[in-house]
Simulated scan of single mutants.
Amino acid sequence: MKIAPVVSREEWEAARERLLVQEKELTRARDALAARRRRMPWLRVDEPYVLDGPDGEVSLLDLFEGRRQLIVYRAFFEPGVGDWPNRPCPGCSLVADQVAHTAHLNARDTTLAFASRAPQPEITRMKDRMGWTMPWYTITDGFDVDHGVDEWHGTNAFIRDGDTVYRTYFVNKRGDEAMGGTWAYLDITALGRQETWEDSPEGHEQTPPYQWWNWHDSYGS
């Protein structure tokens, strides 16, 4: 491999400062894009979807676990895909390996769940083997077809108003590369990070950054 130019400390710092200008532009553009997501229209979900969970059948509303928002990643672990039943799709497994502790999402009234068409015993076995702890459900109806994830992985965001569920955002393909971290997940939701610096629609509840951040085992204490 041909190495890059080797320079003095001063030249290296100057090069870093030049690149930092573009990096800050990207950060501001990313924040502006997240603000536009928070202004996306909502799509009401009227279909009574039923999924299988560890304790039996559940509705889409049940997946919220009582919280205001829900993020569902459609993973491909099922007959006919990859090395079934030994492993899920390698890409979906990489996404699962990157998921941060979900307590931070829960603290922002948001639940993360995975869904695929594998039976629950296979999902439980695989979660135990890989050390995955996020809720993982079995799709039993047209949920994947209706939400653009029947042939490819993808992440859908939902919000509820009482018992009424709305679809608020969808990202797939390379858009899923950023998923896994707490900030990336919150940035695709209708409520965002819910911090005071964000450009959000009027009426969004917000708190200062750092104020709500906590150790994952200390929320609620």
Results as ranks from 00 to 15, higher is better:
residue 55 D to F: 03
residue 95 V to S: 05
residue 123 I to M: 07
residue 74 R to K: 13
residue 146 D to F: 05
residue 88 P to Q: 03
residue 13 E to T: 10
residue 86 N to K: 13
residue 213 W to M: 14
residue 211 Q to L: 14
residue 139 I to T: 08
residue 25 E to C: 11
residue 162 G to E: 03
residue 176 D to F: 02
residue 146 D to R: 11
residue 166 Y to R: 03
residue 186 L to Q: 06
residue 91 G to E: 05
residue 133 T to E: 09
residue 95 V to L: 15
residue 134 M to S: 08
residue 107 A to S: 13
residue 159 I to K: 01
residue 194 Q to R: 07
residue 124 T to Y: 00
residue 169 Y to S: 10
residue 62 D to H: 03
residue 96 A to R: 00
residue 47 E to F: 07
residue 184 A to M: 05
residue 116 S to W: 08
residue 175 G to F: 01
residue 188 I to C: 05
residue 23 E to G: 01
residue 100 A to M: 08
residue 5 P to S: 02
residue 101 H to I: 09
residue 56 G to Y: 06
residue 160 R to M: 05
residue 48 P to E: 06
residue 123 I to C: 02
residue 170 F to T: 02
residue 148 G to D: 07
residue 52 D to T: 12
residue 97 D to G: 01
residue 180 G to V: 02
residue 201 P to I: 08
residue 103 A to D: 08
residue 121 P to K: 04
residue 43 L to T: 14
residue 155 T to I: 10
residue 51 L to H: 01
residue 219 Y to A: 07
residue 125 R to H: 12
residue 201 P to W: 06
residue 144 D to V: 00
residue 115 A to R: 01
residue 168 T to Q: 03
residue 9 R to K: 14
residue 163 D to W: 05
residue 124 T to C: 00
residue 187 D to C: 11
residue 160 R to D: 05
residue 3 I to K: 12
residue 212 W to V: 06
residue 183 W to Q: 13
residue 84 W to V: 09
residue 72 V to W: 02
residue 27 T to E: 15
residue 172 N to P: 00
residue 215 W to N: 14
residue 189 T to S: 06
residue 130 M to C: 13
residue 150 D to P: 00
residue 23 E to V: 11
residue 90 P to S: 09
residue 17 E to L: 15
residue 66 G to P: 06
residue 36 R to S: 13
residue 150 D to A: 11
residue 41 P to F: 06
residue 26 L to W: 11
residue 170 F to E: 01
residue 217 D to Q: 12
residue 211 Q to V: 14
residue 168 T to P: 01
residue 24 K to T: 09
residue 85 P to A: 11
residue 61 L to P: 01
residue 64 F to V: 05
residue 70 L to N: 01
residue 79 P to D: 06
residue 23 E to L: 14
residue 131 G to Y: 08
residue 162 G to N: 04
residue 52 D to Y: 07
residue 17 E to R: 13
residue 89 C to W: 04
residue 119 P to A: 08
residue 179 M to S: 04
residue 121 P to F: 00
residue 185 Y to C: 07
residue 43 L to M: 11
residue 74 R to M: 13
residue 187 D to T: 11
residue 192 G to C: 06
residue 216 H to D: 07
residue 180 G to E: 05
residue 168 T to S: 12
residue 210 Y to L: 15
residue 132 W to N: 02
residue 64 F to G: 02
residue 83 D to N: 11
residue 214 N to L: 00
residue 110 T to A: 08
residue 4 A to C: 02
residue 215 W to T: 12
residue 59 S to G: 12
residue 92 C to N: 02
residue 137 Y to S: 09
residue 41 P to E: 06
residue 44 R to Y: 02
residue 36 R to Y: 03
residue 87 R to Y: 10
residue 40 M to Y: 11
residue 35 A to M: 08
residue 5 P to T: 04
residue 189 T to W: 04
residue 76 F to I: 04
residue 36 R to H: 10
residue 161 D to H: 12
residue 116 S to D: 10
residue 111 T to R: 09
residue 75 A to C: 13
residue 171 V to C: 10
residue 158 F to D: 00
residue 5 P to F: 01
residue 40 M to K: 12
residue 199 D to G: 03
residue 163 D to Q: 14
residue 24 K to D: 08
residue 65 E to F: 09
residue 60 L to Q: 03
residue 146 D to Y: 04
residue 155 T to G: 01
residue 114 F to Y: 13
residue 46 D to C: 04
residue 136 W to A: 05
residue 103 A to Y: 06
residue 95 V to P: 00
residue 98 Q to D: 15
residue 90 P to A: 08
residue 189 T to V: 09
residue 13 E to K: 12
residue 135 P to H: 07
residue 193 R to E: 10
residue 54 P to M: 06
residue 119 P to R: 08
